[in-house]
Design a protein around this nucleic acid. Structure first.
Lengths: 336, 336
DNA sequence: TTGTAGGCGTTATCAG
DNA sequence: CTGATAACGCCTACAA
């Protein structure tokens, strides 16, 4: 490994001068600057970030924790975070939380031990209390898709209630009146909020959710299938199924297909999250975009602003989802 | 930030002793060890990795570059790499290459500038020559899914030819004789190899690929659709479509559905990669598993072995894909 | 404009 | 078993 000393020697200047051109300070003559630059080139010199970090008390790196990397959801998040960090030369390192308390804790400690300047955390299992406590420690962090009152300014999330609302409302506006609902685990805030939004839309139209046409799933595809089997068996009037995420929607659609129900002619489906899956189902799935890119982007900006003192405008803490119309929903309105 | 000095003072010992318990050296009495430990706890002390790296000449971090994070393919790869790295306390940095020369180069330099101990690279655009050159620089790297003779021992990849072979062979064994093929861009080695494997299987059965039923796509869903439209228009006998990846398969299936072709009764499809998509299509897609988890795992092991001197057995450079049977392929054999 | 020297937090050598 | 102290590579007063 070549150091600033090697460069200095080759350029026959002092290490101070080398350091100066490295941080392009004004106080260097063109001549020495050139000498140093060519020496650097010749030696393929790269500054040692550890040494720099030691001086600056800053590693220029931020840790990202998401539940997992495979699957369809967190890639976009990481991508948007990484992109905006990289644009200002901050490095991103990653860890997975696996939806479980122990692993999330370990991962956070893992990131902490790395001395990152900040963290972006998508935590599922850890308690509010733990996170509040964590916020008192030295490494600042942003929370993705979670809201904790005591540290609300660190929370950046989707307005899930609104998403649930527009999903259901969009169906009602198209004339659907007999809706089933496949929810996520209701103890999860986001799942619960989406369901509340659904109920609000129903209330606006004076419709009651038939209780047996509401199924609490677990956000996985199989629970969507399970739900759909149950719905179909009941032989109740049913024109559309609202799903709290795309995965469950695909599971439900699978069963519909198996029962020879045409989508959307016999039955409509709407998903949530607008994951990449929605483009690959047949028919392509109408869904609610969760704005995950913007959220990731904003999380990174939060850090740039609060940790790296970049001049960044307002931080937006709540993002509105929006309807993405594809081919899985049919209008029941009479053609005008 | 609390340092080794703070701990030393609080425990009233020298920093040397603190350092010793930190690296649990033998040479410390129980008593001082305890004093130090409680002091550390009390101060919530974490060693400064930058300082450690400075003396160890090692950052305990490895950089990962993949084309992108969203989408369905690279998440698994990163996940498997990260998991095995983390198990030995190495951190993973990420960067995206965006399938383009400039961006890949920048990302590699970005990772290099971070002084990672090694890199795992999934490069698409950069030339062999560039990578050979890179291999002479100071940071060691492994190449994922690419083979370059001159640096073959750094290459870990899938046997794509074999994958193409078993995909087609599996159809032939089920009695299919009229096959269409949707390939990836043939200038890409993996796409080409898959096609060669396809041809080898056909040759074994003395079948010729109808030229107009071969379409060179770009690995994206839309090109699968495009291909399928063209195939259907020709009205040639056709019982199965072999696709060089899952995305194109879903695109083709979409069109089949639109033309009211029942899958697999009227026409069978087989994909490649066994991405998560294959579980979400209707019907679920038979595909060729690309072993990406094992490949990522092995890449990480390569690094543990060659960079961190871990005692790890043989490195496997070539992985065999395997057939994953789902519901998109029908047997044409007479029932025995 | 340039160079010298002290310090960033650790590790490791060498005396005690 | 313990404690000074010299590196590690870089930045930055301060001095020249």
């Amino acid at each position: 490994m070549t150091t600033i000393y090697d460069v200095a020697k080759l350029a026959s200047v002092s290490i101070a001068s080398v350091s100066r051109v490295l941080n392009d300070s004004e106080q260097v003559s063109e001549q020495t600057k050139n000498k140093v630059l060519t020496a650097m080139n010749q030696l393929d010199y790269h500054p040692n970030t550890s040494a720099q970090s030691l001086v600056y008390k800053r590693t220029n790196s931020v840790g990202i924790m998401v539940p997992e990397f495979h699957g369809v959801f967190y890639g976009s998040l990481m991508g948007s975070i990484e992109a905006t960090l990289k644009s200002v030369n901050k490095h991103a390192f990653i860890a997975s939380g696996h939806n479980c308390t122990l692993s999330e804790k370990e991962s956070i400690e893992f990131l902490t031990s790395r001395n990152c300047d900040a963290m972006v955390l998508h935590v599922e299992a850890l308690s509010d209390d733990y996170l509040i406590e964590l916020s008192k420690k030295s490494i600042p962090f942003v929370l993705i898709n979670r809201y904790i009152k005591e540290i609300s300014h660190r929370c950046i999330k989707l307005d899930n209630e609104y998403g649930g609302y527009i999903a259901t409302k969009s169906l009602l506006e198209l004339g659907h009146r007999n809706l089933a609902y496949i929810s996520g685990p209701l103890w999860k805030k986001d799942a619960n909020d989406r369901f509340l939004g659904h109920q609000r839309a129903l209330a606006e139209y004076n419709i009651e959710q038939v209780e047996s046409l509401m199924f609490e799933g677990d956000f996985l595809q199989s629970s969507g299938s399970e739900a759909m089997e149950i719905f179909i068996k009941q032989n109740l009037p049913l024109t559309a199924v609202v799903c709290a995420n795309d995965q469950m929607a695909t599971g439900a659609m699978l069963i519909a297909h198996q029962h020879n129900l045409a989508i959307p002619n016999d039955i409509s489906f709407i998903g949530f999250d607008n994951t990449i899956l929605a483009q690959y189902t047949y028919p392509q799935l109408t869904s609610i975009d969760n704005n995950i890119d913007h959220i990731g982007n904003m999380a990174a900006k939060w850090i740039l602003k609060h940790v790296y003192q970049a001049s960044i405008g307002e931080i937006q803490n709540l993002f509105k989802p929006q309807l993405i119309t594809r081919d899985s929903v049919k209008s029941l309105l009479p053609i005008a």
